[in-house]
Write a protein that binds this DNA or RNA. Structure first.
Lengths: 332, 332
DNA sequence: CTGAAAGCGCTTACAG
DNA sequence: CTGAAAGCGCTTACAG
C-alpha cells in the first residue's frame, strides 16, 4: 500500500491533525513543526489520498465540461480556456462529449456517476430549447451558449444578435451591397444560426440593405468543405455579390478558398466575415475578420458562477452576457 | 446531506451489502430483492458517493491525459479518441495541458494532486529526450509520441520514419523530382521532425532522388500561416519544385494556399503531402493526401496498456508501434 | 499551536 | 443469495 498520513505523523512525531495542517497550509504552525513534517513527507514520498480527502470534505474539486465534440475547433478552444479558468480556482476539469450532433446530451446530464464532479458546465447544441426545466438537475450546473434560454440555472452567453449586426454594419460600411450568408439552418428555430441571421438582417436594414434570398446558403454542417461548396454554388449562380457573412469561421475559411479558386480577391472582389474567431483565423491568408465571442471571458464567468454555486451560493439564477468584439483583419 | 446507501437499505429493508450488490450488478440477487432495492433507489433519488467508493476501492477510475495544448488540432483529435477509448473501459478522462511548448511537463508529472488519477497518458514535446529516467514516476504512466525513446515505461508510437518514407516514395512514384520539405527544425536532435526528415531522405534515396538544400524550409511553428509563408518563400526563390512534403497537415494546408495564390495548381504543378491526417484535411480543396498516424489505434493501445498497469500488470515495459497509412487524396 | 476521536459513505472478506 | 463488521485515509469540530 501507499504511504499514509499516519506514517508521516509517526515519523515526524506529531499527530495526524498536525500533518493535515501542514499539507493544507494552515497558517499557525511552529516552523520547527512544519519542517519536521515536511521532512517526513519527503522521506516517505508521501502523496495524500485524494479520494479520502474528497470523502471527508464532501467535494471532489472536479468540475465537468460537457460539450459536443473536441474535434470542432470552437469547442477545443473553449475547453482550453475553461481549463485555464478552472486551474485558477484550483479545480480540475473532466470533459465529456455528447457527440457532434449532441445525441447524448440528456444521458450525460443524468449519468449515474454524476457525483464525481462537483458541478457541470453544459454547452448544448441539440436539446429541446422549449424544455428548459430539463436543466433543473439537482446539482450545480451552468449553461453555456445560445441553444436554450430561460432555464432555471446560471447562464453565460454572448449576444449573437449584436455580433452579427456589427458584422453586417461593418460590411455595409466597407461598401458591400450584395451580401451573402452561408450556414443558415432551415429547420432550426433556436440557437446561434437563428440569432445570427436575425442580427445580420437587422444590421443590413439599418444600412438600408436587404438580404437577397438567392444569396442565402443553407447548411447545418459548419465545416470548411461546406463553406467552399456553398460559396462555389453562389458564385456559379451568377447573382452579383460583394460580401459574405459566414455563420462560423470554418465556413468563412472554406468560402475564402472557393473565392480564391476563381481567381477572385478577398476582400477586393468579395469581403468575408466569420464568427467565433478561432485561432486558425489569425493565420489564414488573408487573415479573417471575425466576430470574437469572448471565449476567455465566457470561460472565466462560467467557472466563477459554477464555483460559487458549489460553495453554496443561493442567489437566483443569473445570465451573464459577455462582451463580443469584431476583430478586423484583412478579409473585410 | 445527500441520500446514502444506508437510507436506501433501510427503505428497502435489506442490508448495505445487498444495496451494494445491486448497484454493482452483482449477478446472484433474487429478482424481488433487486426490485425492492431499485425501487428505493428511485424513490430516494440515490446517487452513490463516488469519493467513498473510490476510497474503499483504492482507485478513482480516472485517467489523466497530459498534452501540450488543446488548441492544436492534432491534440484535440487525440483527446477525442482517447476519451472514446477510456469510456470503453469505463474510465473518465482528466486532461491537463503543459503549454504550447511543453513548459510545464515535468511539473505536471510531479504535481501534488497526482493520486487523483489512477495513471497517466503522457505526450511530451519538450522534455529532455536523454533523460528517460524522469519518466520513472512511481505510478502507472504510458508514454506517447516520439519525443522520448527508451524510457522504462510502456510506450505507444507510430513509425515516423516509415511514414515519411512512404510519402517520399509516393511523391516519387507520381513523378515528382524536385521535392521541398516544410517544417524542419534545425535545433532539434530528437522528435518527429528529425525522424520524418530522415524517412523522407531515405525514401527519396530509394527513388534515386536527393533533397536539394535550397528546398528545405525550416520552422518550429507548425501552423497554417507558417506553411503559407515558407511556401511563398520557396516559390519566390525560383528554384524549380514539383512536390512538397510538409511535417504536418497545418503546414501542408498553408502551403497549398500559397500555391493557389500564385494560380498554380495542386497537384498538377505541385503535389503536396501532409502528416497527421487531421479532420480538416478531408475537407480541404483539394483534399489533402496525408500520413495517418493511426490515432484511434494509438488511443486504444495506450488506454489498454495503462488500464493493464493499473490492474497490476507487471510485465516489462513494452513499446507498441501502431500501423500508419498513407491516405491518398487529390493533393498528391 | 497541537492532540484524540469521530465521521465521511462506500466495499469487502468472512460467515452463514 | 444476504448480513454484520471492519476498514479505506483523510478532515474537522472540540479541547486544551
Amino acid at each position: 500500500m501507499a504511504v499514509t498520513m499516519r506514517e508521516v505523523a509517526a515519523l515526524a512525531g506529531v499527530s495526524l491533525k498536525t500533518v493535515s495542517n501542514v499539507i493544507n497550509n494552515y497558517p499557525y504552525i511552529r516552523p520547527e513543526t512544519r519542517a519536521k513534517v515536511e521532512f517526513a513527507i519527503q522521506q516517505l514520498d508521501f502523496h495524500p489520498n485524494i479520494s479520502a480527502r474528497n470523502l471527508a470534505q464532501g467535494r471532489t474539486g472536479l468540475i465537468g465540461l460537457v460539450l459536443p465534440d473536441l474535434r470542432i475547433p470552437y469547442f477545443a478552444e473553449l475547453a482550453y480556456s475553461v481549463m485555464g479558468a478552472a486551474e485558477q480556482l484550483g479545480r480540475k476539469l473532466v470533459i465529456e462529449q455528447t457527440g457532434e450532433r449532441g445525441q447524448r446530451e440528456l444521458e450525460v446530464l443524468r449519468a449515474k456517476g454524476r457525483r464525481l464532479t462537483d458541478g457541470l458546465l453544459f454547452s448544448p447544441i441539440a436539446m429541446n430549447p422549449d424544455a428548459p426545466a430539463l436543466l433543473d438537475v439537482g446539482y450545480p450546473l451552468v449553461l453555456l451558449g445560445e441553444r436554450v434560454f430561460g432555464a432555471p440555472v446560471d447562464h453565460v452567453t454572448m449576444d449573437n444578435f449584436a455580433g452579427a449586426r456589427a458584422a453586417a454594419l461593418h460590411l455595409a460600411e466597407r461598401g458591400c451591397r450584395d451580401i451573402a450568408v452561408i450556414g443558415t439552418r432551415a429547420e432550426e428555430t433556436a440557437g446561434s444560426s437563428v440569432l445570427r441571421l436575425a442580427g445580420l438582417r437587422a444590421g443590413l436594414a439599418e444600412a438600408g440593405l436587404e438580404l437577397n434570398p438567392l444569396l442565402i446558403a443553407e447548411t447545418d454542417r459548419w465545416v470548411h468543405k461546406e463553406g467552399a461548396r456553398l460559396m462555389s454554388d453562389l458564385l456559379d449562380q451568377g447573382v452579383p455579390l460583394d460580401g459574405v457573412f459566414a455563420m462560423n469561421d470554418a465556413l468563412a475559411l472554406g468560402a475564402m478558398h472557393a473565392i480564391h479558386r476563381r481567381s477572385l480577391v478577398v476582400p477586393g472582389d468579395v469581403a468575408v466575415i466569420g464568427f467565433d474567431n478561432i485561432s486558425e483565423s489569425e493565420s489564414s491568408d488573408p487573415r479573417l475578420t471575425s466576430v470574437d465571442p469572448g471565449r476567455e471571458q465566457i470561460a472565466n464567468e462560467a467557472v466563477r458562477l459554477l464555483a460559487a454555486r458549489i460553495d453554496g451560493e443561493t442567489t437566483p439564477a443569473q445570465t451573464v452576457v459577455v462582451r463580443h468584439t469584431l476583430v478586423r483583419r484583412e478579409s473585410a
